[in-house]
Design a protein around this nucleic acid. Structure first.
Lengths: 226, 226
DNA sequence: AAAGTTCTATAAAAATTTCACAAAAATCGG
DNA sequence: CCGATTTTTGTGAAATTTTTATAGAACTTT
């Protein structure tokens, strides 16, 4: 069995892809390549890489868009490799969910060290199937059931529920939830969080006005009991 | 309750620390500073920051050593901020467990974006358990139990209890408690402290009128016995 | 156009502070 | 040492502040 870590490299220039493949292979990674965002997503679904290393400038779907798409469905580590070094681009990309940003031309050893770092802090492959109490959730398939009945949740509601199911009993602060569900923390979004909690309660609580699963901890956040 | 994220900034130049403190405060972080690795570790233990932002070159204990020490005891996110930009230094530092490496002079917005990114992928704060007598408190999960039964405490009551549990058997002055629970000392707040002690007693004392855990030391403060 | 998300306004709830007054503790003059 | 006086403490309840819930409008995305 091949237990090498799997890296999906995305760049529109075949030459760069060749170089990357060579370097990464030489350091014990399994590599697959894609030349644009759309095909990158296809490979991602089919191959389930452990990390995505991508350029920004690409036809079909650029790196920023790819980043957002990936983040909406996965916590896979994403490292950007780009010639663009304007601060605004870097900020925008990191806020879109990228984990690191390396500018070309890149030092091979630094790139490898940054990849190791990205792998190190990657979430331990969380099981796709979560069962807790009457809940049953398949994360990658985006299916959530309560007492066997399918819940029809929007993407954000789904993310929020997963977040709760993975951290039961403990208080989850507003900022933690904002970060996990929205990807970054902006205090102004606490309104959106309240609304989201409200709509999730409507779908899972027998009596939303006296919640049994999602309890509010005033001033701090919310606490979930399965 | 202050739910700002706590950043420990470490640099031997006071001027840089001032700038960092200013920037980070302005963006909603709570900041504490240290000028060398040894005092950084002390602050870390006492304050439990959510992230450590450190320079490499420092007296007493340099950034690399600090990084290793921190990693041996915690998964706190570490971001390095250094003038040194040789690839070998970056590689060495990242491999010592740093999560990101930003070179000085730094773009403020990029630094902030990299901090957001580091926060985003930070693991759930490791639990910080205090057990004393019949009390069992997990500070980061905000769970407090007495004889196995969950206590339903408000944020200030919780903070006060933690304060007592961390300083058992000795007299805690009013001003000390005000400082710890309210974050600052205003003499007018002694009323609030009295009321708070009263409401905590109601929740933890078998007989609040003759307290066994929280004893008052007239003219001085309170003393807690687990 | 439909679905999802965010924003806004308002009412309700929760926590905190202030306040009044009785009880307890210390101070002080005798 | 003792009682009067002063200061501090405990406590209930009102007042204040802050946070939360929620409906519906506005905005975005698909």
């Amino acid at each position: 069995m091949d237990d090498r870590k799997k890296i999906l490299a995305v760049d529109d220039e075949p030459q760069i892809l060749r170089v990357l493949r060579h370097i990464l292979n030489a350091h014990g990674y399994a590599v697959r390549a894609a030349q644009d965002g759309v095909s990158a997503l296809e490979v991602f679904h089919e191959w389930r890489p452990d990390l995505v290393l991508t350029d920004l400038q690409m036809p079909e779907m650029d790196g920023l868009e790819l980043c957002r798409k990936l983040r909406s469905m996965s916590e896979v580590p994403i490292v950007i490799l780009s010639v663009r070094n304007e601060e605004s681009t870097i900020v925008e990309t990191l806020d879109a969910g990228a984990d690191d940003y390396v500018t070309k031309p890149f030092g091979t050893n630094e790139l490898l060290a940054r990849l190791r770092s990205a792998f190190r802090r990657a979430p331990v492959k969380e099981s796709d199937l979560i069962e807790a109490g009457a809940f049953e959730v398949d994360v990658s398939a985006h299916i959530a059931k309560l007492d066997g009945a399918t819940l029809h949740l929007t993407p954000k509601e789904f993310d929020l529920l997963v977040c709760f199911l993975r951290n039961p009993d403990r208080v989850l602060t507003h900022s933690f939830l904002l970060q996990k569900v929205w990807g970054s923390y902006y205090a102004e979004q606490t309104d959106a969080l309240r609304v989201l909690v409200g709509s999730l309660r409507k779908k899972i609580e027998p009596d939303p006005s006296s919640p049994q699963y999602i309890q509010t901890e005033p001033w701090i956040g919310y606490r979930f009991f399965a």
